[in-house]
Amino acid sequence: MKSVKEKLNGVISPIVTPFVDQEVGYKMLEENILKMNKTKLKGYMPLGSNGEFKSLTDEEAIKVVEVVIKNRSKDKTLIVGAGRESAKATIEFIKKINDVGEIDFASVLTPNYFPSKMNDEALIKFYTTVADNSPVPIMIYNIPKSANGVMISPKAISELSLHENIVGIKDSSKEDIANYVNAVPADSNFYVLSGSITKFLDGLKKGSIGGVLSMANYLPDLCCEIQELYNQGNYIEAEKLSSRLCKLNSKISGAGGVVAVKTAMNLLGYKGMEPRIPLLPLKDKEIEEIKMALQEEGFIE
């Protein structure tokens, strides 16, 4: 049986939810998973930001999880987004997705509807309550830009990392990732993952063990190669590849978010399809700019 570290050590793809005429394209999701099974990815994370989880009904979300469970290779780690605004609702949703089939971890976004009240005390109470009652280990999802500015502090992480059912954090904040790594006691079974390609290599240098990277939806093996090169001690090549992908990312996800990620997927043989309203499709000019960026890097002709 794999350890927590073995399950999280690598690149996780935050799976997108394809929509066609505003309905979930479950068959297209299945095709994406089957194709990604052949890559070096460590695993998948459906129902995150890239999965537009806030735009799904609970019924749709559960069916998305069913499709991923049914089609993923057994060696791929599965983290499922499960954050809700209350501890009670979060616990209930984790139990629902756990009833669908085997998942490894539940990713729990910081609650953020009452941002001024989300201090260390409140967040520690929230995550402790969820972890005490969750049937699967949980990971903390720290993304202030999408969570009303709420950011969990390294000080709170130092306490939460001691809980046996809290195993990691996906950090998509602007905080120095070293502050989270250094907050974790040496004997803790708790690990830090980078939440973007821009923090990925820096995170590895500072002690993180992997990343949940939107770019892994359309260039999965190259994202994995950064970590491979770093682990081999080939730091110059790792820096070169990281710089190349970060530059490309600034023209795709950095410029257009989830919708741009879906566009890049569509251009590179995956089924990103369209976003769900209120997100709008890119304009023709914006699609052309992404196409040109991929052409410049030799990814499409």
Rank of each mutant, 00 (worst) to 15 (best):
L267C: 04
I177D: 13
M292R: 14
E175S: 09
E6G: 05
G195E: 02
V258D: 00
L56K: 04
K247A: 15
T77R: 07
K95C: 03
P18V: 01
T77A: 05
K199A: 09
N142A: 06
I62T: 15
E31M: 11
A82S: 15
F126V: 03
D120E: 13
I62E: 12
K117M: 14
S134P: 14
V258N: 06
L47M: 12
L78W: 10
E288H: 13
P115E: 05
M265C: 14
I97D: 03
M151G: 10
N9P: 08
A106Y: 12
P111F: 08
L282S: 04
K125W: 06
E92M: 03
N217T: 04
G83F: 12
S49P: 03
I209C: 10
G210Y: 09
N266D: 13
F105N: 01
T263V: 14
A216P: 10
A255L: 15
K38F: 04
S116P: 00
G272H: 02
I169T: 11
N71Q: 08
D187T: 10
S134R: 08
Y235M: 06
P220A: 07
S55M: 15
N37H: 02
V100C: 06
Y141L: 14
E66C: 13
V20A: 11
K291W: 04
I300A: 00
K206R: 11
T90G: 09
K251P: 01
A106C: 00
L41H: 02
Q295I: 12
E175Q: 10
E66R: 14
F299Y: 15
A131C: 05
L241C: 08
M265E: 06
V192L: 09
I152T: 04
V4I: 14
L219I: 15
G272P: 12
Y113H: 04
E6H: 02
K251N: 13
I33C: 02
L78E: 04
P111H: 07
Y235C: 01
F200T: 06
G83Y: 08
T128H: 13
K96A: 08
A156H: 03
N182M: 12
S243K: 12
L219C: 11
A186G: 01
N112H: 15
N119D: 15
V67G: 01
P144N: 05
T198M: 10
Q22T: 09
G298Q: 07
P281F: 12
V212S: 11
S146W: 02
L294D: 06
L213D: 11
E225V: 07
M45S: 02
A293L: 02
S158H: 03
P18D: 08
N112F: 14
T77Q: 07
Y235S: 13
Q22I: 07
E60T: 12
M45T: 13
V150G: 08
N148H: 07
N71I: 04
Y191F: 15
L193E: 11
P111S: 11
S49C: 02
N165M: 00
T129P: 01
C224H: 00
L29N: 13
G272M: 01
K125E: 15
M36G: 04
K38P: 12
V16R: 04
N71W: 05
E30H: 07
K291P: 03
K96C: 04
I94M: 06
D120A: 11
S242A: 06
N133E: 15
M151R: 07
N231L: 14
K38L: 14
V150P: 11
I236H: 03
V80I: 09
Y141C: 00
K42A: 14
S153P: 14
V4F: 06
